[in-house]
Amino acid sequence: MPAPFACVIVDDNEINRLTLEHLVELTPELELVASLPGSLETLQYFREGGNADLLLLDIEMPHLTGLELARLLPQPAPAIIMVTTHRDFAVDAFELQVADYLVKPVNLPRFTQAIIRVLDRQKPKTGPAPAASVEAKGSELFIKVGTRMLRLNFDDVLFIEAMSTYSILVTDTQKHIVYLTLKALADRLPFAHFVRAHRSYIINTQRIDAIEDNMLALGKYEVPVGKSYQEAFYSQLRGL
């Protein structure tokens, strides 16, 4: 199993740092190794031998801005994702060849998209990337992403949500990124009680708590039933 990316957060706002720490915690490919309140502390961190594969870097900070700090980082520099409340710095950020540029408040889907971009940059260019696959055995779901195999209890999965070219498996307590489109994932699922209810959702019908106005309650989440899916979904639901 490949080691997770060592991630360092740099932001002078404590609330913003806590938000990013939570997003990192939800991302199994990342490991938080430091959360720092400013540029000077970050330079000191690296001078003392600290390491980072990825820097989540605020732009507007006292003493040194994130853009100024990025130019002073030791080489080879970590991948950088800029995080700010303003879009005005985007051109300057990409001139520094940062991996991505996030505007606060940052949500999980957009954060995940940025992390995928960073991970894609790290893939070897000498051959094709290992194919993602899903293999189910009993009540367990085996998810393979590259060389990493993640095993989940299939009964714990509430629903699967489409996010661009990847999917997110949602349980009561965690979200797991699968590098397959929702259609490709649906084609690999052998379980009859996982049903497409929307162009963006596959539902574990065994975990539906209630249905009202074409909204499905699954744990703490609500998921819509798409208009074009309603007839087939409810028909299949009655037949399970």
Rank of each mutant, 00 (worst) to 15 (best):
T42A: 13
T42C: 15
L43D: 05
F46V: 06
F46E: 03
F46S: 11
R47C: 07
R47H: 15
E48R: 12
E48T: 08
G49F: 07
G49Y: 02
G49W: 03
G50D: 07
G50F: 11
G50R: 03
N51V: 13
A52R: 05
D53M: 05
D53H: 10
L54S: 06
L54K: 05
L54G: 05
L55M: 12
L55V: 04
L55F: 10
L55K: 07
L55H: 06
L57I: 02
D58A: 05
D58E: 08
D58V: 02
I59W: 06
I59N: 04
I59C: 09
M61S: 01
M61Q: 01
M61C: 01
P62V: 02
P62D: 01
P62F: 00
P62N: 00
H63L: 08
H63Q: 15
L64R: 06
L64A: 08
T65W: 04
T65V: 10
T65Q: 09
T65F: 07
T65Y: 08
T65P: 02
G66H: 07
G66C: 06
L67Y: 12
L67H: 12
L67A: 04
E68L: 07
L69H: 11
L69E: 10
L69Y: 07
A70F: 10
A70C: 14
A70P: 05
R71G: 05
R71L: 11
R71H: 08
L72G: 10
L72D: 15
L73D: 03
L73N: 03
P74G: 12
P74D: 07
P74Y: 14
Q75S: 14
Q75A: 15
Q75F: 00
P76V: 03
P76K: 03
P76W: 01
A77C: 13
P78T: 14
P78D: 07
A79H: 15
A79Y: 13
A79W: 08
I80D: 09
I80Y: 09
I80H: 06
I81V: 15
I81T: 12
M82I: 13
V83E: 00
V83F: 01
V83Q: 00
V83S: 01
V83G: 00
V83A: 00
T84A: 07
T84F: 01
T84S: 15
T84D: 07
T84Y: 03
T85R: 10
T85C: 10
T85P: 00
T85N: 08
H86I: 04
H86Q: 14
H86A: 10
H86N: 11
R87N: 15
R87F: 09
D88W: 04
D88R: 15
F89K: 09
A90W: 13
A90I: 13
